[in-house]
Amino acid sequence: MKQPGTRHKARRRAVDLLFEAEAKKVSPAQLVAERREYVRSDESVGSIHDYTATVINGLADDQNQIDAVISSYLREWTLERLPAVDRAIMRLATWELFNSLDVDTIVVVDEAVELAKELSTDDSPAFVNGVLAKIAELAPQVRAAASAEPRPSGDAE
């Protein structure tokens, strides 16, 4: 069996943190910041990989839009009715599809399906794959639009 890579572990930790934040009704970005501070005094907590933090912080900024996109592709389901772990996996993957320019869309979908196999129900991998395959079709347009947006210059106007 192939050993999971660093990015896979970072994604899995991101899903764990998203799940925990939702259960505790706290911001996932706040949870990451607290863990990064806490690990300084207690290494048993485990450090937060930079990619995990990047994904969590990006998702925290874009969660309403991400949730709207996911919801628009759900048939006979609502986002709230999905298992919490499936929501976390799809939020993570959708954010990556739209923002991680260094990761192919097929890799993002495959990783999400693997996480669903590891963490969720027997039906989840196929469900996650179906929803994300549709969202992946949007990824090139979203990435192109994001790269065409003017970047803030930092100058006050």
Rank of each mutant, 00 (worst) to 15 (best):
G154H: 11
A136N: 01
A14Y: 04
D62C: 12
L132W: 10
A133D: 15
S41E: 08
V32S: 03
E118A: 12
K2Q: 07
R7G: 08
A145N: 13
E20V: 13
A93E: 04
L119A: 03
D50Q: 15
R75W: 07
P140Q: 06
E34D: 10
M90I: 08
S47N: 10
A68R: 09
S153F: 15
K117R: 07
D42Q: 07
T94E: 07
R91L: 00
E118T: 01
R13Y: 08
L74P: 01
S44W: 07
K25W: 12
V128E: 00
E118K: 14
A139H: 01
A33H: 08
P140H: 02
V85T: 12
D86P: 06
A145G: 15
A112L: 01
P4V: 10
A10M: 06
A88V: 02
A23C: 11
S147D: 00
E114F: 13
D67S: 02
F127K: 10
M90E: 01
G5L: 09
T6H: 15
D102F: 12
P150R: 11
V113I: 08
S44F: 00
A144Y: 10
R87Y: 00
L92V: 10
N99A: 07
T54Y: 12
D67R: 05
S153K: 11
L17E: 03
I66S: 01
L31H: 11
L101T: 14
T105V: 12
V142T: 12
A133P: 02
T52H: 01
R36V: 05
N57W: 13
P83W: 02
D16S: 06
S72M: 08
L119Q: 08
K134N: 05
T54M: 02
D104V: 14
A33Y: 03
Q65H: 11
T121P: 01
E96L: 00
D50L: 09
D122R: 11
T78H: 12
K25C: 06
R40A: 13
D123S: 14
P140T: 03
L82V: 12
E43C: 08
T94D: 06
Y38N: 13
I89T: 05
A156G: 04
V32N: 05
I135H: 09
P150I: 06
A21R: 02
Q141T: 08
D67F: 07
L115H: 06
R7Y: 06
K2Y: 13
A112W: 07
P150A: 13
D102T: 08
W95V: 05
Q3T: 12
P28A: 03
M90N: 02
R81M: 05
I66N: 00
I66F: 05
E114I: 13
S120H: 02
S100W: 01
F127A: 01
A88P: 03
S41I: 14
S153W: 06
A53G: 03
E157N: 10
K117A: 04
K24A: 14
V128C: 07
S153L: 15
I66V: 14
D122E: 12
L119V: 01
D16V: 04
L18Q: 10
P83V: 00
G46K: 05
D42C: 10
D61R: 09
S72A: 14
D42P: 09
A146G: 14
H49R: 07
S47L: 06
T121S: 15
R75N: 10
L74H: 01
L92T: 05
A144P: 05
R81V: 05
A156V: 10
L138Y: 09
